[in-house]
Design a protein around this nucleic acid. Sequence first.
DNA 1: ACTTAAATAGGAATTATTCCTATTTAAAAA
DNA 2: TTTTTAAATAGGAATAATTCCTATTTAAGT
Lengths: 138, 138
Amino acid sequence: MSSYQEILQNNNLKATHQRIAILEAIDHAGHIDVDKLFKNLRKHFPTLALGTMYRNLSEMSDKHILLEVTLPGQKVKYELKKEPHIHLVCNWCGKIEDRILDIEDKIKECEEENDFTVLDSNIVFTGLCKKCQDQKKV
Amino acid sequence: MSSYQEILQNNNLKATHQRIAILEAIDHAGHIDVDKLFKNLRKHFPTLALGTMYRNLSEMSDKHILLEVTLPGQKVKYELKKEPHIHLVCNWCGKIEDRILDIEDKIKECEEENDFTVLDSNIVFTGLCKKCQDQKKV
DNA sequence: ACTTAAATAGGAATTATTCCTATTTAAAAA
DNA sequence: TTTTTAAATAGGAATAATTCCTATTTAAGT
């Protein structure tokens, strides 16, 4: 369990207030896009520059501290990189949930059949979450 | 096997030269982003407007004629919607390949464990294609 | 051919992202 | 603790991406 400060320093990045605030805000939100993030941070950090946001989101993604979550027709969202997981996205309420799903067998299958070395995977299932299933029944 | 004209008309879209050219170009390229598509089409279609491109890519995606392929750190790419498939993306040469992979069991598993109704899936494996594996050995 | 609703071209307006540089700051050294 | 310095930031300009507007054109039904 390492602090944001440690995470940054382990990646040769100075632990600036701005970076720590960005990581805190992303961790708190779960998945968040540039605009929402910027508006949230500005409240407590009025001088934060948009360029600083873009630069840091990009740097921290390059260093695998953050992960970009891309969904068709939506702005890129950022999340803290933790254990590998898939995303469940509700078409109705838009909520994004993280779930663990073991897909080692599928990766093996894919590698053997295609002469392809899989290094990473990105899986999104879209559909209806519990709450929205229930509401649509009513 | 239906023509572009039929596909468009079945979706209540007029079969304009522009739309047919866009579909042809995407089909030919496999996966292509707005800029490359526009530059290609302009060669044979000098009056094509960028707004027309954006409008049509968006409309045809809404109608599920096209599919947006989103990969972190890259521009959105478009492909013709055909049978469901996953994407293999080579980290080294960037090539995107389509592959069939049966994941019904994983979807079932995910639905049962999470009270989530899966309607669609989007799977990307990134790694090294055959050609690039070989080249890195040398 | 005629009609008409839909689509386009072209460009303006808006939004998103990157770039530039003087100033500030984190953190290592003294 | 102060000093030093390379790295990072703020602020704004520049560029790129996308959407919007409207007069004109066109697909396709009559």
